[in-house]
Design a protein around this nucleic acid. Structure first.
Lengths: 340, 340
DNA sequence: AGTTAGCACTCTTGACTATGAAGTGCTAAC
DNA sequence: GTTAGCACTTCATAGTCAAGAGTGCTAACT
């Protein structure tokens, strides 16, 4: 276990390094933090902290920088999560109070705001709607051969998709579809639009089998593939000195371009909690020089979307987590008002 | 006017520079291009070409690089637009033959393909629909206080938007809306959903004025603001040596992040033609080190979307223009089939 | 008059060196 | 357990130098 002074020194080094991006020396700690001991004592403690793996040393005559393990200790034990100003709170509130028509828009706004305030790149995905319950499903004829399906869910998500046919569709077919789909599916989760259901409908409307298949296919496609990844502030990374090295910047942009990877990370984030992945804690080796902080917001058991911040391991964890917690709180208040 | 040999030398310099990104020397021209003269002659011509502004010189003892004016001459007079392989054509064909439900998807696919083949960053916007004629307009009640408006146009664009109310909406109101809107608007361009129209509807439905206003507002919002900018391959720039300088990469990403700027550029592109903006020909000074090539595809007088390529001034104009022309041709064939 | 060989001149690049600054780790004293 | 003092290490910066690449000019050639 670390004694009190060592903890203070570790915290000071990490916070100084987060601010300056320069290796922290014993002298600078003495100057800027009110430590009541000499630089030699600090050096001894720093050697100890390095020995147990919380610090690294770029080379013998440089100061210390935090290791991934050091950041982890900091995040778990030392970090303060009230690192947010009144102005920032006001700004967040005003942004989140925008009137939106769909839950997904709110996720976008939250992600956007998070990036603005923290100056890191944010990523977000909309809700995984498969578990959402169907409130209403409507088919509307847009042309003699064009049908639109609109599905409303109890978590405020709206899925709409267009289906084209090689043959004319009649109004009576449409009203049949409306009745059958609603009778069977209302109150059911979206994932119930599956093969058994397709079979059922085909039996009920046995003389128009050709119409059913594309409808079910297209709806499923819309539900599954409608997982856009929203990105905000990719260019912000150039403000950080770690991205001065072209290779790092390139890796970063490649990560952001690999939608599947981002999706995977956001999806693996646990429900209702803030998750921090520091450097090589990340499952993917491409991410070893980066940290990711995610959180998912939910209503009851319903997933409403996941937001993440990605940046250098030298990230201002305190700031990001503080802002995230506040946004999370406000989102819940907002959603609690019964918007949907 | 340039004599034949000077033209050949200019062309050779530009093509060599596009390939290598290194200043081109008289010696290397002699080696790699079958010019029947000595390096001294080439040097004389190069001095002349520099004098008239087609070439620049980084410093006295370096080779020459093309100036913006040089590229312009090359694009206007020397460029070949058949720089595309059979495989590439096949690939483009296969991509564009994907079945799509909306014209906008096709624009996205074309943009995406263009970026894949040329390895430059592509941007695209959907059609400016204001001049599109309304084929049908439908209101659908999604909940007692949620209305969806779907508008179909003769160019295959579908605009849908959701409107929320503080009061219940009845089915009879909805059918009224359907009748009134369609009677008045069918065959009209989308831009006709304007203030005079709002007045007209308000007169016709004078007892439900409160319902009309948000509808018109929201529809107009959807028409005007539904101009997403699609971006593809932003990370590709790191393959080009001009982006080795961090400042250039940063400027580039900032440009891509400024949606309004990109939108403006794409919108100012003329109809049905390929437009090339080289370096400081661009209206915006931020773009002085970049070139942009755009083209808009149309059916008759209808705008169907605009696609652009943005990259360093040392761009492979020949390749990009060749591929664009081919895509443009295929798009027209595709659309000519009467998909919409 | 246009073309060419030859060569002096210019500028860049990379390797090598010297020097100063920053910081540590150790020793010995407190 | 803490601290002052100092030797030692490493990095960053500037300076020097030589090699290499390419031009521009001059004078000769066709």
């Amino acid at each position: 276990m670390l004694d009190n002074r060592k903890k203070r020194i570790l915290q000071a080094i990490i916070e100084e390094y987060i601010n300056t991006a320069e290796p922290v020396s014993s002298g600078s700690l003495l100057q800027n933090y009110g430590l009541e001991c000499s630089s030699a004592t600090i050096r001894n403690d720093m050697a100890e902290l390095e020995h147990v793996g919380y610090l690294d040393k770029p080379h013998t005559s440089a100061g210390r920088i935090p290791s991934a393990k050091g950041y982890r200790f900091y995040v778990d034990e030392l970090l303060k999560d009230d690192n947010i100003s009144i102005q920032e709170m006001k700004y967040i509130k005003s942004k989140l109070e925008t009137k939106v028509n769909e839950i997904e828009e709110l996720t976008k706004i939250a992600s956007n705001t998070l990036s603005e305030i923290t100056h890191y790149t944010s990523v977000a995905i909309g809700p995984r709607t498969r578990k959402h319950n169907i409130v209403d499903i409507k088919f509307v004829l847009l042309g003699s051969r064009v049908l639109m399906a609109v599905i409303l869910t109890d978590a405020g998500a709206i899925k709409e998709t267009i289906i084209k046919f090689d043959q004319d569709i009649t109004e009576s077919q449409v009203s049949n579809l409306n009745i059958l789909f609603n009778n069977k599916l209302r109150g059911m989760p979206l994932e119930k639009i599956d093969e058994p259901f397709e079979q059922y409908i085909m039996n009920e409307m046995s003389n128009e089998v050709k119409v059913i298949k594309p409808i079910i296919e297209q709806i499923n496609y819309a539900i599954v593939y409608n997982t856009d990844v929203y990105l905000e502030g990719a260019n912000k990374v150039f403000n950080f000195p770690e991205f001065k090295k072209l290779e790092v910047a390139r890796t970063f942009l490649n990560i952001l371009d690999t939608k599947e990877l981002v999706l995977d990370i956001l999806n693996s984030s646990l429900a209702e909690d803030i998750n921090v992945y520091i450097g090589d804690e990340n499952e993917y080796s491409e991410l070893k020089d980066f940290s990711i902080i995610t959180f998912r917001h939910t209503i009851g058991k319903h997933d409403l979307g996941t937001i993440g911040i990605i940046g250098p391991t030298r990230m201002d964890y305190s700031k990001v987590i503080s802002v995230m917690k506040y946004i999370s709180k406000k989102l819940n208040e907002q959603l609690g008002k019964g918007m949907f």
